[in-house]
């Protein structure tokens, strides 16, 4: 592995770090904001920034899937959830539990451990970025050549989740006594 200095950072790295900063910042807002709907919207920002990160990392197909599914579907689903549970729209002061301080300590400790381990472990790792490695063509070939079985299993899982969600949310289906 050839050693590459951290300074000066390449353009790609600068772009990636900026996107990462956006992602981390918006994620922080997601977990600290006092408005439910804002949290969902900050989540959109976070996911979008992550999609950008994927793009920089040449994983373009994953990036678009991220935008489609996360931003397009998951967040919308969450918004529906917020509405259906009749959550207060607007500021509410009781979104955080009394567990906050302990949670913060644990989270900071987690971050400390993970970051130190990761920095210690991958200090000299350097990835050469080759455009096209994550294109739809390559990934599609890989999925349908090598990953067909997990793919099919996953489709069954999705079906099961679909049915489960329907059964759970419909009120006219009673459990067997």
């Amino acid at each position: 592995m050839r050693a590459v200095d951290f300074w000066p950072p390449s353009t790609l790295e600068i772009v990636f770090l900026l996107l990462g900063l956006v992602a981390v910042g918006s994620a922080l807002l997601v977990v600290t904001t006092r408005q439910l709907v804002h949290a969902a919207l900050w989540l959109v920002v976070c996911f979008g920034a992550l999609a950008g990160c994927y793009l920089v990392l040449t994983a373009e197909f994953v990036a678009w899937v991220q935008v489609l599914i996360y931003v397009g579907a998951v967040v919308v689903l969450l918004l529906f959830g917020i509405m259906l549970t009749r959550a207060p729209i607007g500021r509410s002061d009781d979104l955080d539990s009394g567990n906050r301080v302990v949670a913060a300590v644990v989270a900071v400790a987690t971050a400390g451990v993970l970051v130190s381990v990761v920095v210690g472990g991958f200090q000299h790792a350097y990835a050469d970025l080759r455009p096209g490695a994550g294109s739809a063509e390559e990934l599609g070939a890989s999925i349908f050549r090598n990953w067909v079985l997990p793919f099919e299993a996953l489709s069954v899982l999705l079906l099961a989740a679909l049915i489960g969600a329907i059964v759970l949310s419909r009120t006219d289906i009673k459990g067997r006594r």
Binding site: N99, A103, V106
Partner: peptide, 18 residues
């Protein structure tokens, strides 16, 4: 309170890791 349980769990995992 399940959150308390998870907090304990994660703290334990961290302690073990450290």
């Amino acid at each position: 309170n399940a959150q308390l349980y998870v907090t304990g769990l994660l703290a334990g995992v961290l302690l073990i890791a450290v």
